[in-house]
């Protein structure tokens, strides 16, 4: 285990959970990043546009702050550009079909006890592990 960082991981997880909790208790919404981002484009005149835009702005601001204060938080992508593009399309199409990703299904769905979200999360983690394993066999 070369790079196991349990303490920042747990603290960061608590913050992620706090962010999702603020959204739920404040305005009754689920913090699913893909749903929020795609909702913004699908329904630009929707009354939900306001909080969706500020949520994404908050994510971006946190990223900018992290980039300034935490060196190494954003390494350059290691995968070559064509792989990144294919991966991006797969992530986009997949989360659209599944109506959620690591945040909506993984954190919020499991947190509120949804079996549907648990099934989605187990599936994408298993598929991710299988992909990394196959990539290792191909590369070696």
């Amino acid at each position: 285990m070369a790079d196991f960082t349990p303490v920042p991981a747990l603290l960061g997880g608590l913050l992620v959970g706090a962010g999702a909790s603020v959204l739920l208790l404040g305005i009754g919404r689920i913090a699913g990043i893909c749903g929020i981002a795609s909702g913004l484009l699908d329904a630009p005149r929707d009354p939900d546009r306001g909080w969706r835009a500020t949520f994404l702005a908050g994510l971006l601001l946190a990223g900018l702050a992290g980039n300034a204060w935490l060196p190494g938080a954003f390494p350059a992508p290691s995968a070559p550009l064509p792989v990144l593009l294919v991966a991006g399309v797969l992530v986009g199409v997949g989360t659209r079909l599944a109506n959620g990703c690591t945040s909506g299904h993984g954190v919020c769905g499991i947190g509120r006890g949804s079996v549907r979200s648990l099934a989605a999360t187990c599936t994408f983690i298993a598929a991710g592990m299988l992909t990394v394993w196959i990539a290792r066999q191909v590369r070696v």
Partner: peptide, 23 residues
């Protein structure tokens, strides 16, 4: 709601950065 969205996004993003999940 906009302020709630902003605070939520900031906390969520800070958590992702701190936990190393942006790497």
């Amino acid at each position: 709601p906009r302020l709630v969205g902003l605070v939520s996004g900031l906390l969520f993003g800070a958590g992702l950065v701190l936990s190393g999940m942006t790497r």
